[in-house]
Design a protein around this nucleic acid. Structure first.
Lengths: 133, 133
DNA sequence: GTTATTGCAAACAATTTGCACCCAC
DNA sequence: GTGGGTGCAAATTGTTTGCAATAAC
């Protein structure tokens, strides 16, 4: 399901942030989103971005996770991409397959929760850091 | 693999924090760990706890994730427990099965990363919040 | 006109850092 | 004694809040 196109009940900033996240194919921080939007000459405040991301998360359009250095990264749930991340240097590489979707379908049946999406991430050490540690 | 018992190269606080996390069967915040340790009359500073958790994460003994309200929770990787979490109220319920371990084994073979553990979480709305939203 | 949204700056809170002290070896 | 480990307090930083100005309808 693509969310591209106008979605009712979203403000203009919420719309443009969602568009941008859907266009990007990698997770991005709020601060970085702020820079991007200002560069494309949109007059927007950082607080608005945080408020918009909050709403988009609550509505199930956007997901976030926290990096090794404590920063939150945001991405469209459409991306549905998983990563292997190095605990030491933070380097991430994408993982192609996802064994979770089947289970997700089951849970949607069996639980009273309405499930929007899932996150899956592998952690370890990359080749370089393994040598260094 | 149980880590209970003395692990070489860990300081006393790192040891006791790891023990505590292994004894608890739920994720806990650093601040909360601080309270717990002080209650069991250990003289320890909050900074030490953050430093210890950092080391334990780097060594692959402990994993963390961020709650809906931006707080980091820490858990022993032994727990290997996944959750469905409500985006609105933050309520979490555990998920029994895990379809990921097989893929993890594959990745360990095919990637140059040394993988310690994975995180998997489902997000959505619980029954109550779905009605309220 | 009325109401929700926004930008800005100030406030907040979790986490990190600096540094003197302490403990282990 | 020497080195790393530690507690405390101060500093930092990502995020949130208060509020007047602005946009939406």
């Amino acid at each position: 399901m693509s969310s591209i196109g106008v979605i009712t009940g979203l403000t203009r900033h919420q719309q443009s942030i969602l568009r941008l996240l859907e266009k990007l194919n990698f997770p991005i921080s709020a601060q970085n989103l702020y820079v991007q939007l200002r560069l494309s000459n949109q007059r927007v405040g950082l607080a608005t971005i945080y408020r918009a991301l909050e709403v988009l998360k609550l509505r199930g359009f956007v997901q976030s996770h926290t990096t090794v250095n404590g920063e939150s990264l945001y991405a469209s749930v459409q991306q549905h991409q998983h990563y292997v991340t190095c605990l030491h240097c933070g380097k991430s590489i994408p993982v192609d397959s996802c064994p979770v979707c089947e289970l997700e379908a089951e849970l949607k049946q069996s639980l009273s929760f309405k499930i929007y999406y899932h996150t899956l991430e592998f952690f370890g050490l990359c080749e370089l850091c393994e040598l260094r540690c």
